[in-house]
Structure formats: C-alpha cells, structure tokens
Amino acid sequence: MRVLLAGASGVLGRHMSAALVRSGHEVVGLTRSPDGARRLRDDGVEPVVADLLDRDGLLRAVDGQRADAAVHAATALRKPPMRHSDMTATDALRVWGSRNFAEAVQAVGARRLVVESMHFGYGYGDFGDRVITESNTPWAPPGRTPALERHLEGFRVKEHVAFHTEGVEGISLRFGALYGPGYGGGGSDAIVEMLRKRALPVVSERVRGSLPWTHLEDAGTATVAALERGRPGAAYHIVDDESASMTAHVRYLAETFGTPKPMTVPLWVIRPVGPYLHAFLTTVARLSNATARAELSWEPVYPTYRDGIKALR
C-alpha cells in the first residue's frame, strides 16, 4: 500500500513509518517543518510539508497525491506534559486536525484510515482492578472538569471522524503510555537523560496509580497489522500484558541504566505545579489486548515494561 502518514517525523510516527517500510509499504510522510522533511528523506520516506490545522494549505499540499490508506499520528508534544495547557496544541490536532486530515484522506483517494489514540480516552481517574475491554467501558465520557473535558473531546472527535468519514474504513488504535527507543533524543532516551541530571522526581509507591504501557516498536507493528487486517469501525487496545505505575517504570529505567535513583516527592507537591501530571499519575486503568491478539494476529514483542526497558540497553 501507499500510506499517507500524518505526524511522520515524530517519535511515534517514525516507528510507524519504519514498520510500514519493513513490511513492503510505501510511506508519504506529512510534517510541519523543513527539518522534519529532511529527517523523513533520510528515513527513505517521501515528505510533504503541511500543517494539519491549516485546512486549505493541507489540501494544496496533497493535491495530486494518491494513497491507498492513511494514518493520523500527529501530536504537538515535545516533552511530558505537566499543565493542562501543555495539551492545548495536541487537543487541537485531535479535533480540528482530524477533521482537516479526513478531507485530505478523501482527496488522495485513501480507503482506510488508522488513527492513534490512548487509554486516557476512557477518562482520567481510578477504574479499580477490573480489566477494561473495548466494549465494556464508555469511550470519552464527559470530563469531570472543563480542562479534562477538552482532552476527552479530542479523543472523542478523533475516533468519530475515523469511523464516520464517508468512503473511508476507520480503525482506532488505543495505545498505553508510550516508551522505547527514540529518534533524536525522544522516547525513553529523554527520560534517562533527565534521570542522569537528577531532574525527574517520582511520587511514592503508596500513590495508587497504574497505567498500561506500549513499546514504540510494538506500536509500529500494530499499525501495520491494523492497515492490513483491521476490521472497519473497530478500536483495538495496543498495550502490553501488565499495567504499572509511572514510579515503578521510572525507577526500573534508573536501575537498568545505572543512573542516580530518582528523588521521591509527595503527591501534593505535584498538583499545583502540574495538574495534568497529577491526573496522569493518579489514573488507574488496566486494559485487555485480547481483541488485538485475536483480530489483528498481533501481540507485543515486549510483554511488560521491564522486557522493553531491558531491550534498550
């Protein structure tokens, strides 16, 4: 297939692109900057420079292009978000960028659209010990606060666009917290560097928080599987087999890479300086990947975050 990939120059996008190319597909990568275009050329990807939030410019940029399928993996995150405002640009890409990209997908003649999503689309909070499947928990319910609602609107709109764009078969991949080898200092490389500088504290293990995790390479192979074998209108959990707290994950990174142990701070310190991070750290969600295993014939190469971190050495 010839695949139009939005967000191709980002850390996740480059893993997706690499997996697609390894599987014999051709990638046309959308990026917002000339620097991103240069990186894509180095990766063997045909670049198209366009901003998803500029509808007219986007449609001009893809004029004359043809593609069989498309992937929307664009975000605006350059570092872990602390405040709700750190998510503003990514929220806009999920709402307005998704709508504009859907028009571009139709313009290039693509028949299949895979969109990147996350477990946080179920909401920020404590879901207890029950295991969430794609059908037993409401997707993107109203947020408890205006700030949380803005984030959930992004997840809600992005999937709605994927599933309801005329002439397009939409599929959503709901990832866990992403980690793994980065490009240009992204991914877990950036976390390890912060640990070396003693610039990344953790909260106490007594804080109830547990997240599903997804290795970036597993995210890439799942994207290929969804394009090749996904069921139109379906959402899939692309997560590993074990949830774990951010504290456990970061401490294992420090142990594995031999960095100084991260300082432990009380949770109450986080809320005033990082209210989004506070919601992140206190969310408890356990997701099943059984549907992806059964329908996509996909399984994580790294079943737990420990396996994935050890492979980074």
Score class of each variant (00 low, 15 high):
residue 1 M to W: 00
residue 2 R to G: 02
residue 12 L to F: 09
residue 15 H to A: 09
residue 16 M to L: 15
residue 18 A to N: 09
residue 22 R to V: 03
residue 25 H to E: 11
residue 30 L to R: 02
residue 32 R to E: 04
residue 33 S to L: 11
residue 35 D to C: 00
residue 38 R to T: 10
residue 41 R to M: 11
residue 49 V to G: 07
residue 52 L to D: 12
residue 54 D to H: 07
residue 56 D to Q: 13
residue 57 G to N: 08
residue 59 L to T: 02
residue 67 A to M: 01
residue 70 A to S: 13
residue 70 A to L: 05
residue 71 V to G: 06
residue 72 H to G: 08
residue 76 A to L: 05
residue 79 K to F: 07
residue 81 P to T: 13
residue 84 H to T: 10
residue 85 S to F: 02
residue 85 S to E: 15
residue 90 T to W: 03
residue 92 A to K: 11
residue 92 A to E: 11
residue 93 L to G: 01
residue 100 N to L: 04
residue 103 E to D: 15
residue 106 Q to P: 01
residue 106 Q to Y: 01
residue 107 A to N: 09
residue 109 G to N: 10
residue 111 R to G: 15
residue 112 R to V: 10
residue 113 L to G: 11
residue 114 V to I: 14
residue 115 V to R: 03
residue 116 E to Q: 11
residue 116 E to T: 15
residue 120 F to L: 14
residue 133 T to V: 11
residue 135 S to H: 14
residue 137 T to W: 08
residue 145 T to L: 03
residue 145 T to P: 05
residue 148 L to F: 00
residue 149 E to R: 08
residue 152 L to H: 03
residue 154 G to M: 05
residue 156 R to L: 07
residue 160 H to M: 06
residue 160 H to G: 03
residue 162 A to I: 05
residue 163 F to D: 10
residue 163 F to L: 15
residue 166 E to P: 02
residue 166 E to K: 12
residue 168 V to R: 10
residue 169 E to I: 09
residue 171 I to G: 02
residue 173 L to W: 07
residue 179 Y to D: 08
residue 181 P to D: 12
residue 183 Y to T: 02
residue 191 I to P: 00
residue 192 V to D: 04
residue 193 E to R: 14
residue 193 E to I: 02
residue 193 E to M: 06
residue 195 L to Y: 01
residue 196 R to K: 15
residue 199 A to N: 06
residue 200 L to T: 10
residue 204 S to A: 13
residue 205 E to L: 07
residue 209 G to I: 05
residue 211 L to R: 07
residue 212 P to R: 13
residue 213 W to G: 00
residue 215 H to P: 01
residue 221 T to K: 04
residue 222 A to R: 05
residue 224 V to T: 04
residue 225 A to V: 13
residue 226 A to Y: 12
residue 235 A to K: 05
residue 235 A to L: 02
residue 241 D to K: 00
residue 242 E to W: 05
residue 248 A to G: 06
residue 254 A to F: 05
residue 255 E to P: 01
residue 261 K to I: 08
residue 263 M to F: 12
residue 265 V to N: 10
residue 267 L to T: 04
residue 268 W to N: 12
residue 274 G to L: 06
residue 274 G to S: 13
residue 281 L to H: 03
residue 284 V to I: 14
residue 286 R to Y: 02
residue 286 R to G: 04
residue 288 S to T: 13
residue 289 N to R: 13
residue 291 T to C: 01
residue 300 P to C: 09
residue 300 P to S: 10
residue 303 P to A: 12
residue 304 T to K: 11
residue 307 D to I: 06
